[in-house]
Design a protein around this nucleic acid. Structure first.
Lengths: 210, 210
DNA sequence: TATTTACTAAGGGAAAACCCCTAGTACTAT
DNA sequence: ATAGTACTAGGGGTTTTCCCTTAGTAAATA
């Protein structure tokens, strides 16, 4: 029997997931949590093998929650659940210790397969995500070179909120020229050519929420 | 016993929904469909009281599916399921004959309540959606005045794809000046002040998909 | 200690977006 | 017939974004 916990702030999705997994014969859903915080509080008393973790959550996100959970239970296995293939956070999630990665649009069979694979000590990544990783690898683009800096992420979030360069400069107490530099670097690193594309990119890469 | 069908192209969400509703004692899930087309094909042979319909789907969307379903079975009751409160399509969905409107983030209890209410011949709208409607009513803004025209929706979709004014003018075989007029009218009607906000607004209002 | 990286910020210019205005045509509805 | 609406498109302007360059400071790292 594989004991599972689910962490997702989307109530109906989480409830559905609980029931879907309860139907699989050797899977036992021990608990479900609507936030990283509530999961971490309960973790010490939970007897679980694997946790299904949503990446994008209010409050503690999936990456932070995974990192903290690993300090409490280092051998806990984490399968990340994400909405978009483009999600740039999968690297951070892998670094945080995730053993698997499935898309929310995956069906129950793929999800069950991922759980069994990870439970055996292996890894599981959705086909789409593997393709994305492979494509990035052969395109020769160094992942690290294009990582946004802390400040750039900050600026990007404000851009997505609809703030102009002037407004961002006032919000961050820096000059408009500096904001322009950040904007330009963000566009270059993201490989997008204007704000419309950038906003979509930011959503898909979990930099901002709609 | 209330017989239900579910139409949603998001597999895991649909599977979850089926199981969640199967747990409610007087609800019976008769069928679930991943597209409006497959639902319409099966509809004549289905003995259902209510259909839970996702609005945003590939191919036939929820509005078109509802309209066609109503011509086949005029007394079929439809509850629309949507991701965002801002969804401007709820008016079209109501016009298409929907009796209820729930958000995807709603829990099983609210969903069961909606189904029971609609089954009794009533209507059910999520609190958040009612608030939005009430707010629009008291703000005095005439809904119809701010409805985007066909061309404007077309331009909006291209904006969200990241096309510049010049590129849009070339795609639609009209002058840049005309595109500028459309852009400006779209911003005015949507009450957004720049492209970043407009893109988010367009997603929330189901004009474009990410 | 020397080098790299992030953040800061300037000048200067090209392009795009944004905001006025007027105005013709075509279709729809009263 | 006439009024309204959508779509078209021009002039002319301001503002914002985008792109290039150079360059200083602080912190981390080799």
């Amino acid at each position: 029997m594989i004991n599972i916990a689910i962490v997702d702030d989307h109530e109906m999705f989480r409830e559905g997931l609980v029931l879907v997994l309860s139907q699989v014969e050797d899977i036992n859903v021990v608990g479900d949590f609507s936030s990283g915080d509530s999961f971490l509080k309960a973790l010490a008393d939970l007897d679980i093998d694997i946790v299904l973790m949503d990446i994008k959550m209010e409050g503690l996100n999936g990456i932070e929650t995974t990192q903290k959970a690993k300090t409490i239970k280092p051998d806990l296995k984490v399968i990340a659940v994400t909405m978009f293939v483009e999600d740039s956070y999968y690297i951070q999630m892998i670094n945080a210790g995730a053993h698997g990665f499935v898309l929310k649009k995956a069906g129950k069979y793929e999800l069950a397969q991922a759980i069994h694979e990870v439970n055996k000590g292996g890894n599981y990544f959705s086909q789409e995500i593997l393709q994305k990783m492979a494509f990035k690898a052969i395109s020769g683009k160094d992942e690290k070179e294009n990582q946004l800096s802390t400040r750039e992420v900050e600026v990007l979030r404000l851009i997505c909120k609809g703030l102009s360069t002037k407004e961002i400069s006032e919000a961050l107490f820096i000059s408009q020229k500096t904001v322009e530099v950040h904007r330009s670097n963000i566009l270059r690193k993201s490989d997008q050519k204007n704000i419309a594309q950038l906003v979509i990119w930011a959503i898909k890469n979990n930099y901002t929420t709609i």
